[in-house]
Design a protein around this nucleic acid. Structure first.
Length: 608
DNA sequence: CAGGGACTCT
DNA sequence: AGAGTCC
């Protein structure tokens, strides 16, 4: 049956399932920060430009690189070697984040999984696209686009060469579109896996792309003089490897896996072994909403409790804003801190986390809200966690505190999903009001009277810290109305109590009503003006997709999104709403690292 | 560094 | 849950 591989001239579906089935494109935006600045101020384009954070030039345009500016150079040195260097402060990441999101959103255009890696890198798995394209293409005489790492000696029997050539054309198309629509030049790497796509990407730059075939993976990998060049091998792993005299990727290729198993888990050992030969089967995972939202603040030293409390309070304020933007209700909170430790530089964080009562947050007109009392509760929880970390009878010295919401209300499937749907909805109240001909106060108070599910609602006494339930305690949906102070009447979110008591049929009814009301543009807003955000377009999209108000994730640029075909917008939304693997999608989206563009280059040292 | 997150292991 | 790693 192996003969079927011989039939490589005409690619078949079985071929694709063979050796190198996937086609991955890695796209890297050239000197990202600098390009953002140059797009903002075109006059900078012709001058050497450096982006400054603190006292270092984190990146620069190619004009500046010509005169010797390296990434992460001290400002003083940079100015020495390039006196007319223009510097722009790049400490506020907001605009970079926005541009990054625009690009990410644009990449959705190809209807393939896109994984964001930091601010300026994206993987896109175009395997399926290629599949379709291959059917409608004359396979004879296909030519790749861009650079080729190495000319193949023989055609790979699995047909991957053809697929990758098409992928290279696709990469070119993608880069062109990014340039046409957003003005960014990019580099791309095309390969049959993420590892090679990423590593080959910077081979030709800027504004170029490179294709590598699987058969050259091993040799290509051996050109890296440090194992550190391999993504996922960080400083610790490098240290361990070096301690075993494994320095270069070539060293790694030659060491027996059993040797590695003495220092790494069996899993890791195998992974390392695969990676060093250019093998990697990790999937491109569609980037979705973050699984945690957090902030940290570092400083010289804090040694007094009250000061700590202030730090946390400030962090909490900011964090709550982010949570509101995100739109999901947090159910778990983590406190992190770093103790002053002369020994180990940085790192060495410690953390404590706990569940938080669902009554702390409410959904008010689609916006997450929290009362003053709720914030007090959170501060109490935070300081309780803090006490777990610090022995207050002894002096302490902190250099960092952090706060993060680490879990959010679960999405549910099937029938219960509609509950979730309504829970977060902003206009249920309005709809019901329409139905009931406006009796706001009465109706919402009525619900509160409905059988308070007794025990579960007793959280006011101690309630903030949910004792981690041994048996998955029923989510505390039933918040006691009574405890919600003012604005109880005005808040539509209160309805959730009542809604949960409706049977599924009734829920559908409510949902339907709501949709109708929207279609007629009646949707009155129970909540006062939201923040800026284009309200009208939001509503339009809600209608189109069936009215879920948690439309696109916050990292998605609205303008770009709106520019996409309606059909695609809906597809995207359903993807975001029902992330492929049932769980919430992963990967940071709020990732504002100072990822140094193209930093992988520093590990790329051609063999002597 | 510094600030955010994700994944993995225990 | 919490720590360690990695980017």
């Amino acid at each position: 049956m192996d003969d079927r591989n011989m039939d490589s001239s005409s690619s078949t579906i079985t071929d694709v399932a063979t050796k190198h089935p996937k086609s991955i494109i890695h796209i890297d935006i050239d000197c990202f920060y600098a390009q953002v600045e140059m797009l903002r101020k075109p006059e900078l384009r012709s001058e050497p430009l450096g982006i400054q954070q603190k006292n270092i030039v984190v990146t620069s345009n190619y004009e500046a690189r010509k005169c010797g500016i390296k990434k992460c150079m001290l400002v003083s040195e940079a100015l020495k070697s390039c006196p007319n260097l223009k510097l722009v402060n790049g400490e506020d990441l907001h605009d970079y984040r926005a541009s990054s999101n625009k690009i990410f959103t644009l990449l959705q255009h190809w209807k393939s999984p896109v994984e964001k890696l930091g601010m300026d890198e994206n993987f896109i798995d175009v395997t399926n696209l290629i599949q379709e394209k291959i059917k409608s293409t004359n396979l004879s005489n296909i030519k790749f686009t861009g650079h080729l790492y190495r000319e193949p000696e023989t055609e790979c029997p699995c047909g991957c060469h053809t697929r990758l050539k098409i992928a290279s054309q696709l990469a070119s198309e993608i880069r062109q579109k990014i340039f046409d629509e957003l003005g960014f030049t990019t580099c791309a790497g095309i390969a049959h896996n993420k590892l090679l796509a990423k590593l080959i990407c910077p081979l030709h730059k800027p504004n170029e792309q490179t294709l590598i075939y699987p058969e050259h993976g091993e040799e290509f990998m051996s050109t890296f003089q440090s194992v550190r060049a391999i993504p996922s091998i960080g400083s610790k792993t490098t240290e361990t490897l070096i301690s075993q005299n494994i320095i270069s990727v070539s060293d790694l290729q030659q060491v027996a896996v059993d040797v590695l198993k003495k220092h790494f888990s069996s899993d890791m050992a195998v992974r390392l072994k695969n990676l060093c030969f250019g093998e990697d089967n990790t999937p491109v995972k569609q980037t979705g909403r973050p699984q945690s939202i957090g902030l940290e603040d570092s400083f010289k030293t804090v040694s007094v409790r009250s000061e700590v409390e202030e730090k946390f309070s400030a962090l909490l304020q900011r964090l709550l804003m982010l949570v509101r933007e995100d739109g999901r209700i947090p159910v778990s909170l983590r406190v992190t801190l770093r103790k002053k430790d002369v020994k180990r530089l940085s790192s060495h964080r410690e953390s404590r986390q706990c569940q938080i009562s669902s009554s702390i947050f409410t959904v008010n007109g689609g916006v997450i809200t929290i009362t003053e009392a709720g914030q007090q509760k959170l501060m109490t929880i935070i300081m309780r966690l803090f006490n777990k970390l610090i022995d207050l009878s002894k002096p302490f010295h902190l250099t960092l505190v952090g706060l993060a919401f680490t879990k959010f209300q679960e999405r549910m499937t099937g029938r219960s999903s509609i509950v979730n749907y309504l829970m977060n909805d902003l206009s249920v109240q309005s709809v019901l009001n329409i139905q009931n001909d406006c009796d706001t106060s009465a109706s919402s108070m009525d619900y509160s009277a409905v059988s308070p599910s007794s025990s579960t609602t007793t959280d006011l006494s101690d309630g903030e810290v949910e004792p981690s339930p041994k048996k998955p305690k029923k989510v505390n949906w039933i918040a006691k109305r009574r405890c919600l102070s003012r604005e109880d009447v005005a808040s539509p979110s209160k309805l959730k109590v009542g809604e949960l008591r409706l049977n599924s049929k009734e829920l559908e009814k409510v949902s339907e009503l709501r949709l109708n009301s929207r279609d007629r543009s009646l949707t009155p807003r129970a909540s006062p003006a939201k923040d800026n955000m284009s309200d009208t377009s939001d509503n339009m999209k809600d209608i189109a997709e069936g009215g879920n108000c948690d439309e696109c994730p916050s990292y998605v640029d609205k303008d770009v999104f709106n520019a996409l075909p309606e059909e695609m917008q809906q597809e995207l939304k359903s993807m975001w709403k029902n992330p492929a693997n049932s769980e919430l999608p992963r990967t940071s989206t709020r990732n504002m690292n100072k990822s140094k563009p193209n930093s992988i280059l520093k590990y790329f040292v051609p063999q002597k």
